[in-house]
Design a protein around this nucleic acid. Structure first.
Lengths: 140, 140
DNA sequence: AGAAATTTGTCCGTATGTATC
DNA sequence: AGATACATACGGACAAATTTC
């Protein structure tokens, strides 16, 4: 099969079906999802596609994966909002140089700098935050 | 996003940023680079573009890739006294999470985080400041 | 205690289709 | 037309963590 993604890509369709099983209780909260190898057989999709589908659910906190163990269906303690809570991972904004940054860059306090903040997640929770500062003029 | 490669193609720009992180010590020599999947998320680029960027660095011996393991940043006996870059200045210290960081990590305000600050100079003056935050427990 | 099997993590190479410069 | 880039998808292989025998 080539790569026909009519409307919805396959990994989203698979993710939807898995999500439905969790919400309906077919897969109980706290229990393991079928292994990737099982899912590839069941959905007749490549492992990469299955992993992409699971990644979608992980992003939405529906599941959590552990290396060597498997992927667990999450209990649902928080309905805080709905599924709307997926923020951008990288944001850029202008900031005003404080004393420390001004000293580092050798500029005056208050001068505008660009700050890019990248949030790196692992199994839903934030693992690393990277903030990069540079001077607008120096390009990038 | 479309394909606006102003002058430089995207994969070279990404390669440059990764190279900077290695030379500046943000990515320590001998340590693993973020996985392809992480880099695609961080740079918002497709896997092909990320792989192209890494291929550039591999070509220049800046990194070495091991099948199934990852891509390592190479120690650099290379042109250490280059005109463009001076000694990497990376300092690590413990900081207390303020409101923003606490919200990002999902922790309480005041919890200690590790901050690594790297200063990248070019031709003497500070070009970029990178601050990386992570939780002591979650390894590095 | 140790070996084997299981499972996820990562990289490799390739392919198709679309879109932009 | 060609290079660049994106999104999607396949199959294979090796690595690492965990579980099972």
């Amino acid at each position: 099969m080539p790569t026909p993604h009519y409307g919805q890509p396959r990994y989203r369709l698979i993710a939807d079906q898995l999500r439905e099983r969790i919400e309906s209780g077919v897969i109980l909260p706290g229990s393991l999802l079928p292994a990737e190898s099982v899912l590839t057989a069941e959905f007749r999709a490549s492992r990469g596609t299955i992993r992409q589908a699971i990644a979608v659910l992980r992003e939405a906190r529906f599941v959590a994966t552990e290396h060597g163990r498997g992927t667990y269906a999450n209990p649902r303690p928080h309905e805080w909002g709905s599924e709307k809570y997926s923020e951008p991972e990288a944001t850029q904004r202008e900031v005003s140089a404080n004393v420390e940054l001004a000293a580092l860059f050798g500029i005056d306090v208050g001068v505008t700098l660009i700050e890019q903040e990248s949030v790196i997640r692992r199994d839903g929770s934030v693992e690393t935050v990277v903030r990069t500062y540079w001077h607008p003029q120096s390009g990038r």
